[in-house]
Simulated assay, not measured.
Amino acid sequence: MGKNDFLTPKAIANRIKAKGLQKLRWYCQMCQKHCRDENGFKCHCMSESHQRQMQIFGENSNRIVDGNSEEFEQSFLDLMKRSHRFSRIAATVVYNEYINDRHHVLMNSTEWATLTEFVKHLGRTGKCKVEETPKGWFITYIDRDSETLSRRG
């Protein structure tokens, strides 16, 4: 058997590690690259491709942050629409479901620093009904599609 064999214990362990979610601490949103540890992340940050991405970000940071914010909001609302269309649910529950997707947009690459700020934004823009309770923030998806259909019919 060769050193780089597919069925070696090391190769199997590496595939298992790569399969699951890793710590967000070593994730580069700009390059969409996940590193397994601090050393890997450090090496990635020194790489030429990362430096190019950061230069691009520096040239038009507002456009990139706005794009990430829009994508985050759309994905979050799509999840609400699919899974919790007619229910009042804790914002943290929906957020935890959202981050279970391995390829989600990180909140710290958007214009919102916290989930609370994002939830308040959804309330201000009328996309969700928002309530603050002692148990946290609760949101209810406002279904515009069925609203417009019922007005026409």
Rank of each mutant, 00 (worst) to 15 (best):
Q32I: 04
K33I: 11
K33Y: 06
H34W: 08
H34C: 10
C35A: 13
R36L: 10
E38S: 15
N39C: 05
G40M: 07
F41W: 03
F41R: 04
K42F: 07
C43R: 14
C43V: 12
H44N: 03
H44C: 00
C45N: 10
M46Q: 11
E48H: 07
S49M: 09
S49R: 08
H50K: 01
H50A: 08
H50I: 05
Q51T: 07
Q51N: 08
Q51R: 09
Q51L: 08
R52G: 09
Q53S: 12
Q53N: 12
Q53C: 14
Q55M: 08
Q55C: 02
F57N: 06
F57A: 06
F57H: 04
G58I: 02
G58E: 11
E59D: 10
E59Q: 12
N60K: 14
N60R: 07
S61I: 02
S61N: 11
N62A: 13
N62T: 13
V65H: 02
V65E: 05
V65D: 06
S69Y: 02
E71S: 11
E71I: 05
E71Q: 11
F72V: 00
F72N: 02
F72S: 03
E73Y: 04
E73P: 01
E73S: 13
E73C: 13
E73T: 15
Q74Y: 09
Q74G: 03
L77F: 00
L77H: 06
L77M: 08
D78Y: 05
K81F: 08
K81H: 11
K81I: 05
K81Q: 12
R82E: 12
R82P: 05
S83K: 12
S83A: 12
S83N: 15
H84I: 00
H84Y: 11
R85T: 04
F86S: 13
S87N: 02
S87C: 05
S87Q: 06
S87M: 02
S87I: 06
R88A: 04
I89G: 03
A90D: 12
A91E: 05
T92P: 03
V93P: 00
V93C: 00
V93Q: 02
V94A: 07
Y95M: 09
Y95A: 07
Y95L: 06
N96I: 03
E97L: 06
Y98Q: 01
I99V: 10
I99F: 04
N100I: 04
N100W: 09
N100G: 15
N100A: 15
D101V: 07
D101F: 10
D101G: 14
D101A: 13
R102P: 11
H103V: 12
H104G: 11
V105G: 03
M107A: 02
S109V: 03
T110D: 00
T110R: 06
E111L: 05
E111A: 11
E111H: 14
A113S: 15
T114P: 08
T116S: 13
T116Q: 09
E117R: 15
E117S: 15
F118N: 01
V119Q: 04
V119N: 04
H121N: 14
L122P: 03
G123F: 01
G123N: 00
G123A: 06
R124S: 14
R124P: 01
R124D: 15
T125L: 05
G126F: 04
G126L: 01
K127R: 13
K127V: 03
K127L: 09
C128G: 03
K129Y: 02
K129Q: 10
K129A: 11
V130T: 10
V130Q: 02
E131V: 06
T133R: 06
T133Y: 01
K135L: 13
K135E: 15
W137P: 01
F138G: 07
F138E: 08
